[in-house]
Structure formats: structure tokens, C-alpha cells
Design a binder for these strands. Structure first.
Lengths: 195, 195
DNA sequence: TGATCGAATCTAGCAACGCTAGAAACTGTA
DNA sequence: TACAGTTTCTAGCGTTGCTAGATTCGATCA
């Protein structure tokens, strides 16, 4: 048992090594630089070993994305826990969310731009994805009032996500980041207007 | 003059043909199917002619994107013009924006996901891009109040963009689209809360 | 009308991509 | 020490974006 145990352990380590190396390479040089050849060279194995761990390159990106969602969930939970009022919790979560996107651009790309096959809005979605969304939902829930909590959370998430992606693409000026975020939070926690 | 004039005209026609063919192919089969070989075959020229019109494939995608921004600006203007109150204008613009994204998924991808080199928040940004943003800004301006109009527009744009992309990626359930949009608009036009 | 020269276009090919079949090496067992 | 099974690698396939050099086309002049 100990021999096969060691093998399994080594295999699991290599599995994680592939994920972390792909992530590092992407964060350092962008996802275009993450080719199976370069990745294999970095982990000091030949190309085909990648395919003994993952179905293909997409699966590697997805694995990085899931890791990202787990970290995002942790960051949001910490932000929410540090806040006093519900409004402050929303502000803290929004700040943590946008900071996460700014600090890990390639990771954020893997989570939202490159990964297309991760189930999300279903029960089959990986736990980290549901955990990250739950943090947003939990932060907004106390303020929902007559609003549907699920929809309220989705709208809040979408607003934060849009800001992150537009900022990242250089489509929102980098300055006034703070004020923009404050304005977003102000709208999110506002009592809804009617048309 | 008439001969070289005809040549220039034919060249311009082919230029547009490349753009429209790329767009059609993308909308029909996704951008992955838009290879330089398939594109050349469709326009019934060899591959290298593409490079006599565009610096590379990215430039073709960018050209499609600019066309998309022009159409988006038109759609938003029409929506805004049809509305009565400022609040209704915001609702109309938001509805038109999300409908545009849903109706032209590949085009929207070209505009926001694939194109990375289009300048935006600067004066050097192509006119259609500034026009589309201006429609959003103009719709929100009457409601800005003490809010900075520019930031207010950016936040509104980000919120709509986030909703479109998350919906498109299958990360927001397709049902309750209407209610979600209404909730978003309600938050956008709300008098801001404070933290 | 026919030769010439420049421009437009195509053929053919490069390097790099994701991925895989079959050979080789390595590991544990007898 | 020979064998069996797994693991890993070498080599290569088809496709990608892009380009150099050959070729064809067309306007201009003798």
C-alpha cells in the first residue's frame, strides 16, 4: 500500500504543479504564453504527461479557474467578516472583489473569459464557484428588502464583474477608481427607484 | 482618375467584404471558425490579400468590433429617443443594450472580449466607440444629481456589460431575464444610498 | 500592335499550436 | 536475472497565423 500510496501522492503533487505552473506563467506573460510545450518544459516533463492529468489545455485552464474561485471566496468572506453594518459589508465585498480582479488579471481571465465549460448556475457547479457567489449573496441579503435576494445578488455580481472587466481592458480610466467603486456601492445599497 | 478611382472603390468593397464575411462566419459558427484560410476561401481570394487590407487577424476582429459599436450606438439612440421620462430612457437604453448583446453574441465578443488593442477612454478612440458610450452617458446625465456624470455613466455601463457577459457565459440563469434587468435599472436610477 | 514595367495576386512554405500513436525506459515481481 | 506492466518520451499529424518569392495581370509606351 505504501508504494502505490507514494505514487499516488507524487502524481497528485505533479497535478498541482501543472496547475500552479500554468497560473504563474499566465500571470507573468499572459495566457497566450501558456502553451503545452512551454508548460511541459517548465514542469520538466514531456508534453504527453499533461494529457495523463487533464483532458486538454482547456481543462488545465478550468482547474486554474476553480482555484481562483476558491481564493476569491476566501477573500470575500474575510472582507465581509471585517465589516460592521450591512452597507459596510457590501462596500468591503465590492472592494475586495475589484481588488482581486486587479491583482490577479490572468487568473480572473481564466475564471471568466477563457473558461467556457464550467457549469455555474446549476447544482453541478463546483463548490468554490458556488461559495464565491454565496459570499456576494450573503453580503447583499440583509439589504434585499422587497427585492428577490437571488436576483439582487446576480445584479450586484454583474455590476462588479462589469467594472472589473472594463477596467482590465483599459476601457475605464485607471484613475478615480475609488470614487467609481464608491458610486457603484452607493447604487447597489440604494433603495430601488421606480420607473 | 476614373481608372484608379474604380480600383480604389473595388478595393474598398473588398475591404468591407472581408469585415462582413468575418462577422457572418463568427456569428454562424463562432470566432474559432474564423481562420484566415476559411475567410480567404469565403471571399474567393487567397490568404495574403487579407494582409494587404489588415495588419493581421486581430485587425479584422477590431474592424468588426468598431462596426458593432456603431450599431450599438444607433440602437441605444433609438431606444433613448423613444422614451418619455429620464427614468424610462435609462430603462429603454438598458433594455436595448442587453438585447443587443443577446442578439449578436459573436459581435459582442469581438467588441469586448477579443479586441484588446482598441483605444477607448482616450481621445484617440474611434468615433463609434465614443458614440456608444455617449448614449449611455446622455441617458444617465439627467439623473446624475450630485453624482459625477462621467463616473455615473461608467458605473451604469459596467453594470450592463457585466450582466450581458455573465448571461452570455451561462453564469446567470436565462430565465427571469426581465426581472433581473428591471432590478438593475431600479438600482441605477435610485437615489444613492450612503455607507 | 506588341514589348515593358510596376502592381496585384497566388503558390508554397515556415514556425508554432494542441494533441496522440507507438517506441522506449523504468519499476516491481518472480 | 528474466519478465510483465506501467509510465514516460520521441516523433509526427493536422491546423494555425503569417510571409517570401514566383507569377500573373494590366496600364503605358514605342
Amino acid at each position: 500500500m505504501s508504494i502505490s500510496g507514494r505514487k499516488e501522492r507524487e502524481r497528485a503533487e505533479r497535478h498541482e504543479l501543472i496547475i500552479s505552473t500554468a497560473r504563474e506563467l499566465a500571470e507573468a506573460e499572459g495566457w497566450d504564453a501558456v502553451t503545452t510545450r512551454r508548460l511541459a518544459e517548465r514542469i520538466e516533463y514531456s508534453q504527453p504527461v499533461l494529457y495523463s492529468h487533464f483532458a486538454g489545455k482547456d481543462a488545465i485552464v478550468s482547474a486554474v479557474a476553480v482555484q481562483g474561485f476558491a481564493e476569491l471566496a476566501t477573500a470575500l468572506a474575510a472582507a465581509r467578516a471585517s465589516a460592521g453594518t450591512p452597507e459596510q459589508a457590501v462596500a468591503a465585498v465590492a472592494g475586495a472583489y475589484t481588488a482581486f480582479g486587479a491583482a490577479n488579471p490572468a487568473l480572473y481571465d481564466a475564471m471568466f473569459t477563457l473558461t467556457t465549460d464550467l457549469p455555474f448556475a446549476t447544482a453541478a457547479a463546483p463548490a468554490p464557484l458556488r461559495a464565491a457567489f454565496a459570499e456576494i449573496a450573503d453580503a447583499l441579503a440583509p439589504l434585499a428588502g422587497e427585492r428577490d435576494p437571488g436576483l439582487y445578488a446576480e445584479v450586484g455580481w454583474g455590476a462588479m464583474h462589469g467594472m472589473v472587466t472594463l477596467t482590465r481592458a483599459g476601457r475605464l480610466p485607471a484613475d478615480q477608481r475609488e470614487q467609481r467603486l464608491a458610486l457603484l456601492v452607493g447604487q447597489l445599497v440604494a433603495r430601488p427607484g421606480h420607473i
